[in-house]
Design a protein around this nucleic acid. Structure first.
Lengths: 260, 260
DNA sequence: ATGCTGTTGTTATGATCCTACAAACGCCGC
DNA sequence: GCGGCGTTTGTAGGATCATAACAACAGCAT
């Protein structure tokens, strides 16, 4: 998906440049090379500011300077710039995480018991579901009404667990999801009995042994929020409710409905 | 090299977190999990601020929340956090550079002629030297008095070019550099005739056909600055001067001395 | 040679925004 | 009644944006 200049400037800002730095950098790529005046004409940056901004970019390795009269600037190649920014990112990442790795304390096993955690965002929930399913030893239940929430890694995890002898049950009303589930060897598929066909908020349900995850999808922006728990009384009670076919919304504003 | 907490906080800030976000994230890793009060005790963050800071981290996928009383927070694993930050970086990088790639204009060939460019920073100069040397078709001169400026990639480039039939001459007084140069097949090594043995500012000299790079090293902080040019009259004149054994400092404040 | 004009590069200043930091307060459980 | 929790408000400071002034210089016309 293409972005406009404002989007690119925003992206550069999140990469650590100021708005002026981003504009000068882009302008120099447009021009090939140029003086402060050239840059100011192309970029929405006052000419008097271009000098110090370009100097800052040079210090960052993103621009080269020709000390002529007038001074000429030129950007390094995109490849060089990407590598420079990536190297800086990796360097800071290493600095930051090396320290945290030193001081972190492993979460104690008990601390996660009796706990229910909230996770937001589709990618994060994808990962959590895969982690949950991959740990299953005895049985799995997975259901969704949205094909896009039935991701390839989830599909592979179901297949792999089924091959490993874990009992896998799929729940869905959605034909496209049903077909993919049925295509997996050893996976049985049922139509959920208690969710109304008009249900539009449920996201995914995943049960793996004593772990459970329930997600909901916001109709407005499609964002997904999940709660999950593993090895807790809450989890076992909720699993019982689901298996009895009577999932009960815990709270209207943050429903724990399973998939339709 | 290990870093302290302030260094880690600085690094997280350059990765796009605020100071408070970094402190809360680190504190949660120290604790394993905890309430706002727990975090405030460990981190230099007022308790009343922890709630919104942790919410922001959750929105970034770096923290999970347990809506209990009191609210409990726990960090995602370091692996997850690293992946999250890296994915965000790559996403912004792609957004930014995709746009610049669309709008950039190739530098015209002539525009780089008659031009002398300044490059700062050891890594960038490393790359420029390698690029210069790798393009040589006929002859190379390389010299430095500092072993650390004779990098492995430079060494490999000299070796590769020598194998390709390019005449390669090394210039140095420094024994360690001399030994490495002499170990390269087909490379001759000479002692420079004009630089005083007490020279402490020269960095590197690299000549490749009609291109030249000269760097100097700042005694105070060891930083390196280079000028380079290729295919220009300036370059040919300077090459002649070097080859006549009479390199002349262009300006006392930004000397263009060659290597010792 | 001189005066005028436009450009260059540096510096200063004010406005705005974001973040750090402090404090207040209603509600709740004990 | 007290302490803890969670939300909200306010202020100060720094960074960035944006504008403006000015000395020096180059080019050009006279």
């Amino acid at each position: 998906m293409s972005v406009d200049e404002n989007g690119a400037i925003d992206a550069f800002e999140r990469l650590g440049l100021t708005s002026y730095e981003a504009k000068v950098f882009i302008a120099l790529h447009r021009l090939g090379s140029g003086t402060a005046r050239d840059v100011a004409r192309v970029a929405d940056v006052p000419r008097s500011q271009v000098y110090s901004v370009a100097e800052s970019l040079e210090a960052r390795g993103l621009v080269e300077t020709q000390q002529s009269s007038p001074i000429r600037y030129r950007p390094v190649s995109l490849e060089e710039a990407e590598e420079t920014l990536r190297n800086r990112f990796e360097q800071e990442r290493e600095r930051a995480f090396e320290y945290v790795d030193e001081v972190k304390r492993e979460s104690s096993g008990e601390e996660t018991r009796e706990d229910i955690w909230t996770v937001r965002g589709r990618d994060r929930i994808d990962d959590r579901v895969v982690a949950l399913l991959s740990d299953a030893e005895e049985r799995i239940v997975f259901g969704t009404r949205l094909p896009e929430l039935f991701t390839d890694p989830i599909e592979r995890a179901l297949e792999e667990r089924s091959s490993a002898g874990v009992a896998v049950l799929g729940l869905t009303r959605e034909d496209r999801v049903r077909e993919r589930l049925e295509a997996l060897e050893g996976v049985t598929v049922e139509t959920p009995s208690t969710f109304p066909e008009t249900d539009r908020r449920s996201g995914r349900i995943a049960i793996a042994d004593d772990g459970i995850l329930l997600s909901v999808v916001d109709d407005d922006d499609g964002s997904e929020t999940a709660i999950w728990s593993s090895g807790s009384l809450f989890a076992s009670v909720l699993i019982q409710l689901i298996e009895a076919g009577e999932a009960i919304p815990v709270d209207p504003s943050s429903s724990t409905e399973g998939s339709a």
